[in-house]
Design a protein around this nucleic acid. Sequence first.
DNA 1: CGCGCTATTGAGAGAGCTCAATGTGCGTGG
DNA 2: CCACGCACATTGAGCTCTCTCAATAGCGCG
Lengths: 243, 243
Amino acid sequence: MPNSVEMLTRKLDSIADLTSEDRQSLSNLPLRIVELNPDQDFARSEDVPRECCLVLEGFMHRYQNLANGTRQILAFHIPGDIPDLQSLILDVMDHNLAALVRCKVGIVSHASLHEMMRKSPGIAQAFWRYTLIEAAIFRERITSVGRRSAHDRLAHLLCETFTRLRAVGLTAEDACWLPFTQTQLSDALGLSPVHVNRTLMQLRAEGTFELGKSRLTIHDWKGLVEAAQFDPAYLHLRRPASE
Amino acid sequence: MPNSVEMLTRKLDSIADLTSEDRQSLSNLPLRIVELNPDQDFARSEDVPRECCLVLEGFMHRYQNLANGTRQILAFHIPGDIPDLQSLILDVMDHNLAALVRCKVGIVSHASLHEMMRKSPGIAQAFWRYTLIEAAIFRERITSVGRRSAHDRLAHLLCETFTRLRAVGLTAEDACWLPFTQTQLSDALGLSPVHVNRTLMQLRAEGTFELGKSRLTIHDWKGLVEAAQFDPAYLHLRRPASE
DNA sequence: CGCGCTATTGAGAGAGCTCAATGTGCGTGG
DNA sequence: CCACGCACATTGAGCTCTCTCAATAGCGCG
């Protein structure tokens, strides 16, 4: 397992060009390591955070609860992500951030992040870029939820997640750890858990991939990508997702 | 009608604290004024723009076409917006940008924007903030499309749009120019045009507002806000939207 | 005065939902 | 090492929002 900040460096490396000074600054970033339990909130709507959270191990998610009792998961976050980076600039939270499974995070003060950005404009730029890519992912989710069938939505989200994990070196050749429950998937995709279940079974029957036991296994990446109409361009990775 | 850059200054003023130097820089920004026809594309997916577009009059929209022949409108843009500000940092477009109706835009080169940000860090920060608020709007759209009924989705979008227009001074007391067609609304909200029509009629019957003849008229803002569960916090306006 | 775009209405269909029950795997306590 | 509890996955059955297809109406413009 890479050391703490290494995960962040990998992430930024996947989307921006860092100088060796930038990398140096990153490695000096003071982190406080903390473990979060499944579903434990790290920040809530209306909070005014003074620190950010870097995912080191495990998955997190951002979500919103609605008055009608439903909930929408806005994003899943993987190691290397800073899910609340925006709080550096947008002082008050407009949604919630929580762990998805037990996970390890590094806490960094806004002060030290601002300090680092002042010293390394390259990092400031990389951070801005990071938030813009996040926005691109949101846009793609809008398209999914708005216009894609449950079948395609699911396939698309899994393509995206696998690609993001691969970009930070967290996949094997054709599989990865992916502990999303069907209920979580349904809240992310605007579906009911029951329908996610049935759709997942259909996809399984089609043979392009399999999701179960907290593990995603790709049997036919090409086929999956095609079925999902997945074009990784919106992830703006420096090294385009190979095949 | 305010002069060209004035519209942008108003916009940034609504979301950030500008110094008088910042304002000065803005007023010196070299703009090339251009008129766009309805539906005319300004930038397309995969383009690598070298300039940005500031909306001066009229409305624009960003969209994506899907292989199944449908289309998703990702965002509507109003005067004061720079819909492709992200292209400053994310070189290649991952969606399309077009006029919604005949409109007037100011074209600014990336070079002059970068120059301005270098000179006025306050503006750079305001721009970052602008893109983050845009992302917050995307998140809210995900929630709408994922978990709100057609009725609430429509009401919510209209609340949002009215609030944004008010923030840059483009509303009368209780009405504004809003030339969205029902088809455009349907593409933005993940609905069919027919259903938008029926839902709009239902809303009209409820009496909180009326949309027709390119004009939105609010009869009962409180009621509308409540029906839509609209909380303007995510727009991060400096001056909270008064009722 | 007729074309073309947008809005409206009717009718039938379907993707996805809800409610409710059953199965399955796993961690904990005895 | 087994039994229980609990969370998650699976299945069945009926229902409803929202969709599609198709026709009609209204309106602005050349």
